[in-house]
Design a protein around this nucleic acid. Structure first.
Lengths: 208, 208
DNA sequence: ACCTGAACACCGTTCAAGT
DNA sequence: ACCTGAACACCGTTCAAGT
């Protein structure tokens, strides 16, 4: 099918555009220009703009899939998926938000979920609980990477001391107690690894 | 300060507009019309459209804060915050996505985080780990509610059987093994409660 | 001090027309 | 079968002008 090829080239260009100029920079006109065509020529291939964004979700999941190993222990495979999710957000920080905003139904999406199901089954999670735990873990992984990419976590860089100072002494007492910790800049790589380990520990503590 | 009042009325109207017509329906012109004024009259109060969206994040967190208890056990307080996060997404499904997309630096945001810090400290989480665990839990809670609101979880309602059928017999084996479970429609309320319980178990298993 | 009208440079999308 | 040009109904935002 040659039209699938055309669609894939459009999605590649759209992802590149998102990487260069942000998601707001992905306009039909700018995308068309990048491909040397008019905006209206895109519609037969991708549908409307919602269709384009759905396509970007599929495109990103497809890019993630090769990083998912088929051998190794269940824990190693689960860690690999978690790391791949975050690495994807590093390559496509702007488009990444789409992953939390719309369902993915592509064959590659099913393969990705299947790899996680398989690892959870191997870890001893009962059949009835596997889909729930898969959603728990992927929600965390996507949410964490999206939060990093969007800047949700970096509000603290605007001077945590100043933030505490605007409160009377009897408020935000936990912030006061943690002041030394909060003045340190977190190591996000290490934090994400620790989170994945804690989630694995949760699975082990519950079912093995 | 009477200008803060004007700003709050604008944000209330913007949130209402998002609830009624989705986030894409929140245009400066539509918002102005709802307030009986021209679009240009909004700018002195809210800055540009990014400022409006930042304001919506603050507005939503402020709405959530009263649901956070100051007494009860640490576990009860943590569960209450988790439930409040999801209830907020039920009231404002469209605007909710903003919570994962931008930092919150408002006093109410700090108060909210402080309640979680306090509960985690009471649960025995060491000082150095509290901010990390807070980010882990809130990332999950916001991500879960956002996923529900956006439809990310409901791809399976489009007939899971058909989704499995498009693969050859040797692929997606975990999906095949779980076919009975996957054909059942999840109870999202129960699932979210179970997730919160598992995260609490993780904290307990690790530090008490 | 606060709001308005007109204007600018964009959007997504439609549709008839071209090849 | 695939693409284009022109057009429509919108956007966010600026800025001089009004009161």
């Amino acid at each position: 099918m040659p039209d699938d090829d055309r669609k894939r080239r459009i999605l590649d260009a759209a992802l590149e555009l998102a990487d260069e100029r942000g998601l707001a920079g992905v306009t039909m006109r700018a995308l068309a220009q990048k491909l040397g065509v008019t905006a209206m020529a895109l519609y037969p291939h991708i549908g409307d703009k919602e269709g384009l964004f759905d396509g970007l979700v599929d495109r990103m999941l497809a890019e993630m899939l090769p990083a998912v190993p088929t051998d190794g222990t269940a824990e190693e495979r689960l860690l690999a998926v978690g790391r791949a999710a975050r690495e994807l957000s590093r390559r496509h920080p702007s488009a990444y938000a789409l992953l939390l905003a719309r369902p993915a139904v592509t064959p590659d999406a099913v393969r990705l979920v299947d790899a996680i199901y398989g690892a959870l089954l191997d870890l001893g999670v009962p059949d009835a609980e596997v889909p729930r735990v898969e959603r728990l873990i992927t929600t965390f992984a996507l949410g964490y990477a999206a939060s990093e990419a969007s800047g949700r976590f970096s509000a603290g860089t605007i001077n945590p001391r100043g933030r505490r100072a605007q409160f009377p002494a009897d408020e935000v007492s936990a912030h006061r107690r943690l002041s030394e910790v909060l003045d340190r800049m977190p190591d996000w790589d290490a934090e994400y690894e620790a989170d994945l380990q804690d989630l694995l520990l949760m699975v082990r503590a519950r079912w093995s």
